[in-house]
């Protein structure tokens, strides 16, 4: 009973724009227990409200610094911004070092910005299992833009493309070899490519390397040609152009079937994550030590036991 009122208080608070409630709702959403279901139901009609911008790229390329700059620009337009910064959990200790705030603290006293650090908690692909629920909280809170920062480097790390509307792949001139070796996975998910730290040497080469990598192996011209831009989050260079590209991509999604296709993919992914969580919860509550003993003793086979559980 008490738990329910805790959830309904959080729901009402988020709609009122209360920061403490948003924070509590994000925790409930992250934990993904049954008590968060009411929250998901209440917030679902805000689905698709914000432009969800994923920023991925190797460690240290400046994703957080760049986010901080974008937040400033959006705030100049008076848009409300949410940010989810995901870092990996240690598979051994379960702990996590969440350090993205270091570069974004300048926005801390701005009530139009809400930043939450998230540990991936065992989920592969650079996101957390409940990221969609947390996105819903920020959408219900009224965010116009939601930035999602995640380390994304290899082909396995492209989960961000299943949650974000617009994927920005960030790299730097120093990562020349990295760019040469950029794998198909990364090239395919990036809607925008950014060479950050353009204040350093090698900027033009990095940009042209990415351009040629994008051009390779293309059978037909694409409707959306991923722009490649050079920026410096440190010096504040090139950011207006990047912002214009982000706007252009949002418009492209609105005006072509691609926008709806992506929303459908996001829904499919969220549904599948939700169903697996629920199944797993049921599994834990239904399986007894005796069932496992029976398996070991060959009293029941795995398939029949599983069917029994899933009934």
């Amino acid at each position: 009973m008490k738990k329910n009122s805790k959830v309904s208080d959080a729901i009402a608070g988020v709609k009122r724009g209360d920061i403490a409630s948003v924070s509590r709702a994000l925790t409930l959403a992250a934990d993904g227990r049954q008590e968060a279901d009411e929250l998901l139901k209440a917030f679902f009609k805000d689905l698709g409200r914000a432009q969800k911008i994923g920023l991925c790229g190797p460690p240290g390329v400046g994703k957080s610094s760049l986010s901080s700059r974008l937040i400033s620009l959006y705030r100049k337009r008076n848009l409300k911004v949410g940010m989810l910064a995901v870092d990996p959990s240690s598979p051994i200790s379960g702990g996590s070092f969440l350090g993205d705030r270091l570069r974004i603290q300048e926005h801390i006293s701005d009530t139009g910005v809400f930043i939450r650090s998230i540990a991936s908690r065992g989920m592969v692909g650079g996101l957390s299992n409940t990221i969609f629920s947390q996105i819903h909280v920020l959408e219900a809170y009224g965010c116009d833009k939601i930035l999602i920062e995640t380390v994304g480097i290899g082909q396995d790390e492209v989960a961000i493309a299943r949650a974000a509307d617009t994927v920005v792949y960030v790299t730097t001139p120093q990562l020349g070899d990295e760019i040469q070796a950029m794998k198909a996975g990364v090239m395919e998910i990036g809607d925008l490519f950014v060479v950050n730290k353009a204040d350093l040497e090698g900027r033009d080469k990095a940009v042209s390397d990415i351009r040629s990598a994008l051009g390779l192996g293309l059978a037909a011209p694409r409707v959306w040609e991923p722009p490649v831009s050079a920026v410096s989050a440190r010096d504040g260079l090139g950011l207006e152009l990047l912002l214009a590209d982000l706007d252009r991509h949002e418009k492209y999604l609105k005006e072509t079937p691609e926008g709806r296709r992506r929303l459908k993919n996001q829904c499919r992914e969220e549904l599948s994550l939700y169903v697996s969580r629920r199944l797993y919860r049921d599994f834990l509550s239904k399986v007894s030590e005796k069932d496992i003993e029976d398996l070991v003793d060959h009293k029941i086979n795995l398939v029949d036991l599983a069917s029994e559980i899933l009934k």
């Binding site: 920061i19 959990s89 996590s96 070092f97 969440l98 705030r101 270091l102 603290q105």
Partner: peptide, 28 residues
């Protein structure tokens, strides 16, 4: 703390009490 299984948010140096309290609020 990370190695002991905590999720640790680090906000860096020269933080005012206001910044610390607001970060704590947003991070729950």
């Amino acid at each position: 703390l990370r190695d002991a299984g905590f999720e640790v948010i680090y906000t860096g140096i020269r933080q005012t009490p206001e910044m610390i309290a607001r970060a704590a609020l947003q991070e729950d």
